[in-house]
Measured scan of single mutants.
Amino acid sequence: MAAAAAAGAGPEMVRGQVFDVGPRYTNLSYIGEGAYGMVCSAYDNVNKVRVAIKKISPFEHQTYCQRTLREIKILLRFRHENIIGINDIIRAPTIEQMKDVYIVQDLMETDLYKLLKTQHLSNDHICYFLYQILRGLKYIHSANVLHRDLKPSNLLLNTTCDLKICDFGLARVADPDHDHTGFLTEYVATRWYRAPEIMLNSKGYTKSIDIWSVGCILAEMLSNRPIFPGKHYLDQLNHILGILGSPSQEDLNCIINLKARNYLLSLPHKNKVPWNRLFPNADSKALDLLDKMLTFNPHKRIEVEQALAHPYLEQYYDPSDEPIAEAPFKFDMELDDLPKEKLKELIFEETARFQPGYRS
């Protein structure tokens, strides 16, 4: 834990890192770190609560700039109880001085990944967590956004079992017609939660990839272990087919990539493993919904509104309290091709509203 900075004593240090967030945020305490930044909790002297502050230093890398800009653009436009918001952003007053960006968010005690390492969940908890994931996802999908990296560590939890989806750095506007060349190379989302079509096709992607990830998360809540822990690309596919069985001819016809289709045709026939054999203690309604989410063919996979209306979630289902976005989200430009200098300018502009004396 960093010592509390005395008023006016300059930035606090946390594990050798400068955290320049005073005077409003003090009493910093280390939480963890990701690929390009550290997260601390801090005391907000204005709202009198502890908050989470993520320090991001992305400006050396085009990919990190892209992810940072995506996350900020999306989260500043989203407003939903099951999606983490941005409360404040701290950065230098000029673009030349801006080396880091500090993002202030609600402090959540833990995440689903940490929880599943230590606790076996009751059916009631599984049901409530799944409902909140789908409630947040309904809003995301209504904005025409794909999260693309749903996994237990991106689901934040607090002691009252509130759940918030975080990390929109890989999110995209849904565009089933656009052929994202190089899709697989830039697709760094965790393999275990990846839909089979991501490994088999490169053309376009749809909201059904997020539903697949939610199915993987439900299976993990039922058993405290990942359902498809593939060691590499082909191993991942083999794990999936080992449980779902061989795809039907109709399902194979959806695979545009001939090499991928021929690979699947070359494999020995596998039978589907019954879900109640894998999860003998699970609620039968939970397994019915799991089956509809972990469907090989993305066109037959359940959609988020149908999933919310499934009998497993009937005690929570309330369409009048499951809000959607006001308007579909649009990125003005494809960020993939922009140089990091341009992305830095866009991050600077996007964060201006939090600067003292800002006038829109």
Results as ranks from 00 to 15, higher is better:
N297D: 07
I83D: 00
T68N: 10
Q97A: 10
P196H: 14
G85F: 06
P339F: 03
A7M: 06
M13E: 14
Q236E: 08
Q17D: 06
C254L: 09
T159S: 15
K300C: 11
V49L: 13
L218I: 12
F228P: 00
I347D: 09
K340Y: 09
A307K: 01
E350N: 01
R70S: 14
A6N: 00
G85H: 03
G22Q: 09
N271A: 01
Q119L: 14
K344S: 09
A189L: 12
F354H: 13
Q17N: 07
H80M: 02
S223D: 12
L130I: 04
G204E: 14
P298K: 05
N253D: 00
T68F: 01
K231W: 00
N281G: 02
G230E: 00
S153D: 03
L244R: 00
H125T: 09
L155Y: 04
L218W: 11
N253R: 11
M293G: 03
P11T: 14
S248E: 06
G16E: 12
I165Y: 09
R353G: 12
T63E: 12
L146K: 06
D175Q: 12
H178Y: 11
D179I: 05
S266H: 03
K114N: 15
E350Y: 00
S41M: 11
H310C: 00
E345P: 01
Y36R: 02
P268Q: 03
D124Y: 14
D88M: 01
G34S: 00
S142E: 08
L294Y: 06
F59T: 00
Q97I: 02
P323F: 00
L150K: 05
Q62S: 03
I56T: 04
D44Q: 07
Y139M: 12
R194N: 05
P311Y: 04
N201F: 06
D177W: 06
S57R: 04
D179H: 09
H125E: 12
E350Q: 05
D291G: 05
F78H: 10
A171T: 14
E197Q: 09
L163Y: 06
L278E: 08
C161R: 09
I74L: 12
V46F: 11
Q132R: 10
V21I: 14
R77W: 11
E197H: 07
A195F: 05
G182P: 12
R148F: 11
A260R: 02
S122Q: 09
I74E: 09
R191W: 02
W275F: 05
D106S: 03
E314Q: 01
S223F: 06
N281L: 08
L134N: 06
L69P: 02
L170V: 01
K344A: 10
N47C: 10
H239V: 10
Y205V: 13
S57A: 00
D321A: 15
D44I: 04
K151T: 13
P339A: 09
P196F: 05
K73N: 15
E250F: 00
G204V: 15
L294R: 00
G136Q: 06
S360W: 10
A171S: 14
I90R: 00
R50A: 11
L241K: 06
D235S: 08
L184V: 08
I255P: 03
D111L: 02
F354M: 14
H269Q: 12
L134T: 09
Y43P: 06
I53W: 02
H310F: 01
E326H: 01
P280K: 12
S213R: 15
A5L: 14
M38K: 15
A286T: 13
R148V: 12
N144K: 13
K54S: 03
R70P: 00
P268Y: 04
Y316I: 01
L278D: 06
G242F: 05
K164I: 15
D100W: 00
T63L: 12
A143E: 09
K231R: 04
A309Q: 05
P152Q: 09
Q97V: 06
S208E: 06
I240Y: 06
P58E: 02
S41E: 05
I53F: 14
L28K: 03
P247S: 07
I89H: 01
E250I: 00
I86H: 04
Q105C: 10
H141D: 08
I324Q: 06
M221P: 06
H120S: 04
E12K: 14
E341F: 02
L241W: 08
Q315D: 09
N87A: 03
K207Y: 13
I324E: 05
E341P: 10
N144M: 04
D235G: 03
T190Q: 10
L121N: 07
D336R: 09
S248C: 09
M199A: 09
L237V: 00
V51F: 12
G10Y: 12
H269F: 02
L264F: 03
H239Y: 12
D111S: 02
I72E: 08
T295Q: 07
G34I: 04
Y263D: 01
V51Q: 08
A92L: 01
P274S: 12
D210L: 11
T94L: 12
M13W: 12
V188A: 09
K207S: 13
N144C: 09
L289C: 08
I83G: 00
R172N: 08
S122R: 15
V214Q: 11
I165E: 08
L184K: 08
D106Y: 14
T185K: 10
N262F: 02
N224D: 09
Q62L: 14
L150T: 04
D321L: 10
I302S: 05
P298I: 01
S246Y: 00
H147M: 05
L115F: 03
I72H: 01
L218V: 08
A5S: 14
V39S: 04
L69I: 06
D177H: 09
Y30P: 02
Y36E: 07
M333R: 07
I209T: 04
D288P: 04
R77V: 00
S202K: 09
A92I: 00
L75E: 05
Q236I: 09
Y316E: 08
E12C: 11
L200I: 09
L156R: 06
K114A: 12
K55I: 14
P176F: 07
A189N: 09
R135M: 06
E71A: 00
K231A: 03
H180W: 08
L137C: 03
D332Y: 15
L112N: 02
D235R: 09
P319G: 10
F59H: 00
D321M: 08
I165T: 05
L222Q: 14
S248V: 07
E186S: 04
K292D: 08
H299Q: 13
D149I: 03
L75Q: 15
P311H: 15
C65K: 01
L130V: 05
V39M: 09
A3E: 05
F228C: 00
G242Q: 08
I227G: 03
N201Y: 14
C161T: 02
E197G: 09
F19K: 12
N47I: 15
K117C: 13
D167N: 15
T295Y: 04
P323A: 05
L265D: 09
P319C: 09
F331S: 08
S153G: 02
I84W: 03
L278N: 07
A5W: 13
Y193A: 12
K259S: 00
N224F: 11
R172M: 07
G242R: 00
G242C: 15
Q249A: 08
L335Q: 15
H125G: 10
I140H: 07
C127D: 06
I240T: 03
K285Y: 10
K285A: 06
L184G: 13
R67T: 01
P11I: 04
P274L: 11
K259G: 03
F331E: 05
L338R: 01
I217N: 15
S284C: 11
N276H: 06
N47Y: 15
D167A: 14
I53C: 01
L294E: 06
R277V: 06
N276K: 15
N253E: 13
T351H: 01
A195G: 06
I324G: 07
M221C: 05
A195V: 11
A327L: 03
V49D: 07
V101W: 04
K231I: 01
W212Y: 12
D251N: 13
N123F: 08
L76P: 02
G37D: 08
E81C: 10
L308V: 02
N201P: 07
G34V: 15
A42S: 14
N238V: 09
S213T: 03
K99T: 11
F279V: 12
H141I: 04
